[in-house]
């Protein structure tokens, strides 16, 4: 049996990759994918911890997180589409209409 700490370390690494992706990449779609990676890394932690504690809480939470992520995708892609129609770009650096 794989120890729980291995799962937690893997989930930590995946989460860090997600955060790095959000901070370094400039393409909106890739940033969005990195955010999804962060959420799924957390899901892995929840499932591993649920098995570790032997209670169902963690597993049920994952279902909620997945449905929230789906709702976020629906709204997020619509917003990205709206921006693309107006500006014809998916590069965050070019979205600079407001400056002081």
């Amino acid at each position: 049996m794989v120890p729980t700490s291995y799962h937690l370390i893997l989930s930590g690494i995946l989460f860090t990759i997600g955060v790095t992706g959000v901070l370094l990449r400039r393409n909106i779609i890739i940033i969005f994918m990195s955010i999804e990676l962060m959420l799924n890394a957390v899901n892995l932690s929840f499932v591993a911890l649920a098995r570790h504690f032997g209670n169902m809480d963690g597993q049920i939470i994952v279902f909620f997180v997945m449905s929230v992520a789906a709702a976020e995708v629906a709204v997020g892609l619509a917003i990205i589409l709206l921006v693309f129609r107006g500006r014809e770009t998916v590069n965050v650096d070019e979205l600079n209409l407001m400056r002081w």
Binding site: V22, I28, F32, I35, V75, V83, V92, L95
Partner: peptide, 14 residues
């Protein structure tokens, strides 16, 4: 307004 929604969405989800 589009830009505001996008920035709010990306950082909020983050």
């Amino acid at each position: 307004s589009h830009e505001a929604a996008l920035k709010y969405f990306l950082l909020g989800a983050f």
